[in-house]
Design a protein around this nucleic acid. Structure first.
Length: 190
DNA sequence: CGCGGGATTGACT
DNA sequence: GTCAATCCCGCGT
């Protein structure tokens, strides 16, 4: 039994917590500077609305945060600590700033590399070849998209765990919200 | 225009 | 456990 279904824009238009949870176990496909690369999503975080002090968008609509206010399915890629990139996919209705951060992947083996467990948003972008040139592109297009795969494996992904988001201790009560989602038996940092 | 700090990572004690 | 790398951007001057 096998079924593959591309995630369309309406998937990302759903409530962000739902998107963050349901995208676990789907396959990300990216045809970028490192060639065609893909992997199974194992870890995400949700950033939701203008009040969320952990979200860049909590400081308003600026050139940097503009993509977060864009249509669902858009990418928001930013540089962090001067050396790593983070990939987000915008969620909910256009005009409402929300997105999910892709924090973990189990990579699809290539001809020259075995399966890797990438834990951390910087490692994910480095391996995929995501950089700022991929900011504000369509994550439901041909270069970058997601597939929901239905097979014996994805029907038994195991328990989805939740916890506080990483690295946002400055965000007060918002830091404590359990808006990190991960597949317990596929993820380190469990 | 300068300053401070970050949705991270890896190296080191 | 601690800490530096490195640069963009938001904010105050």
């Amino acid at each position: 039994m096998l079924a593959v279904m591309k995630l369309e824009r309406d998937f990302f238009a759903q409530p962000t917590l739902q998107v963050a949870r349901q995208i676990l176990g789907t396959r990300l496909i990216f045809n970028g500077p490192n060639g065609l690369r893909s992997g199974i999503i194992t870890e995400t975080e949700a950033y939701i609305g203008p009040e969320d002090k952990a979200s860049h968008a909590s400081r308003g609509r600026t050139p940097r945060t503009e993509p977060m206010f864009g249509p669902p399915g858009l990418t928001y890629v930013y540089l962090i600590y001067g050396m790593y990139h983070c990939l987000n996919i915008v969620t909910e209705a256009e005009g409402y700033p929300a997105a999910i951060l892709i924090r973990g992947l189990v990579t699809t083996p290539t001809s020259f590399e075995d399966e890797l467990h990438l834990n951390g948003p910087g490692k994910v972008c480095r391996w995929l070849g995501i950089n700022r040139s991929h900011n504000q592109i369509d994550a439901t297009g041909d270069i970058l998209y997601f597939e929901k795969i239905t097979n014996e494996i994805t029907l038994n992904l195991g328990i989805i765990k939740t916890g506080p988001r990483i690295g946002v201790d400055y965000a007060g009560v918002w830091a404590a919200k359990p808006w990190r989602f991960y597949l317990a038996n596929r993820t380190q940092n469990g």
